[in-house]
Amino acid sequence: MSPLHLLEIKNLTKHFGGLAAVDNISFQADEGEIIGIIGPNGAGKTTLFNLISGFLKPDSGTMKLRGENITGLEPHKIVNKGIARTFQVVRPFRHLPVIANVMVALRSPRGARKIEWLKTIERKAADLLEDVGLSEMMLEPAENMGHGTLKRLEMARALATEPDLLMLDEPFGGLNPLETDFLTKSLMRMHLDEPTRCILIVEHKLYALMKIVSRVVVLHQGEKIAEGTPEEIAQNDRVIEVYMGKGIQDA
């Protein structure tokens, strides 16, 4: 085990006006982990994601990737250091065909680095799309695609930069049970293929999430209230209180 954590977050804080959206959060992520970040609405999960990916600048606290300070870097620099993300609301490039969406990510310095010799950018993009099961609609414009397809497309786009840390913002949101199942399976397969990659997942659908994660971080009103394996979290009184309300234990 290397002494350095893949991602180390210390006392991260972000205020919006008087509201502390993320309040003094610290946690670590190591290689090969799948970590779920859960919490009720407004708990600060997406804000935390935006802080890690550089879309927001933290008020205080530090973030380190393999010991290297990445606090306050530009988003594209963070991506090129090895942290890729997807969005809660899909953001495809609507004017471009599906395959070109992935090719954009392959044009980034990190994405281009991973294109091996004698393998064109188109081949690489096609391979990535095959991995998420979109090879049949490669040449269709992205604006004709459905929501579930776009979610998968975003994942292929994030994977194009071959990140060490993949952050998925509500990947199951708006998917039907079949698509949820497909995504769960492809996440598991991805974990087997790239055992060192760490995956952070923000999710509401606990049922789908709990099956795949190895560790869960629970946020509530910007604070971290619990951390542990899915079994521990399910037993945690504070978590149950936050999710179900206080009266449930008395009843």
Binding site: N80, R107, R110
Partner: peptide
């Protein structure tokens, strides 16, 4: 292929950044 990146910026600047593009 550079033109693709230009169109991606036109479509969604934030998503281009998330792709690691120096917008």
């Amino acid at each position: 292929k550079i033109g693709l990146v230009f169109v991606s910026i036109l479509d969604d600047e934030l998503a281009s950044k998330a792709c690691g593009i120096n917008v």
